[in-house]
Write a protein that binds this DNA or RNA. Sequence first.
DNA 1: CTAAACTTTCAGTAATTACTGAAAGTTTAT
DNA 2: ATAAACTTTCAGTAATTACTGAAAGTTTAG
Lengths: 167, 167
Amino acid sequence: MEYTAAKEKFINTWGSLGTLWGINKAMAQIHALLFISPTPLSMEDVMEELHISRGNTSMNLRQLIEWGIVYKTSIAGERKEYFTSEKDVQELARTIAKERSRREIQPTLKVLKEVCSIKDDGTEKTKELIKKTKELYDLAETADIMLNKIVNQEQNWLTKTLVKLLK
Amino acid sequence: MEYTAAKEKFINTWGSLGTLWGINKAMAQIHALLFISPTPLSMEDVMEELHISRGNTSMNLRQLIEWGIVYKTSIAGERKEYFTSEKDVQELARTIAKERSRREIQPTLKVLKEVCSIKDDGTEKTKELIKKTKELYDLAETADIMLNKIVNQEQNWLTKTLVKLLK
DNA sequence: CTAAACTTTCAGTAATTACTGAAAGTTTAT
DNA sequence: ATAAACTTTCAGTAATTACTGAAAGTTTAG
């Protein structure tokens, strides 16, 4: 496999993975493209490379910037804006984990807490609801703490130790 | 908040969370309903409770069974089939982690491996593609190993130790 | 200030995904 | 066998989500 094929394969795979996770295809593909590009790309570059419209490119780039994994950069003497992605995979993982926690896990925890604090009226179904939501709450909280802490470590002593420990 | 409201809130939240993760709403809601129900429910029960059609219920129940988090049960003397969800949250997490790894992470790893094994033709863009896909491969592999190992532990010494360690 | 170069917005449309309901299929009791 | 009780399938349709392209907006250079 040579460069162009490999690149397309990577971009497509990343795109479908995104879809599977509720991230739209264009957004994931733009990210993939920038991630492997050694130089910043302009909107035109992205449009051409992925065959998507100007509007689509603009909207998805904005979202990626909001997520904090793509940056605008200026190139001296150029009028156009250029875009680069975060290049450090550790930092990428950290940003994504933080965002997902903030947007999904935290709100869920909030609801679970509310639900499991209802008054116990003594019926079995109420007891079950309280018990199960409490268990889910504990699980989600543990998972969230671990996710964030792991991803925030300097990645050396901890991860490597753990991986060895767990293999 | 009393029982009915709490239950609805839980089912709805679970449903939208599902959507966000690429699981359809009906499927997530059926799971939620069974998860908090102290007794097995029939297809009719589910249809009524969630106001969804017979076909929809049948298809989503089947998917949940395929995922291994919902079971068919028979009730003595009853013609109808009844359904229950896995009630142990640890086991639930374990099953989901295993499935996601199998369906998503493994195929991605495979492609990343292929892409980062292309011949290095010496150009900068090729070097960058190889380097970045290699880094992603390592990250995904580590994440996958940790996810599975953590979720497969007996949940006591390891998780508790880690949570304390990392807090 | 004006015009060129560029970006954003958004109404309309296309593509995708989920849902319904009725017909076909299956199982069980007699 | 057959009929009742139940489940699955799937063509058609509805709902959701993503994309386009052109108009409106913004910035910069002269």
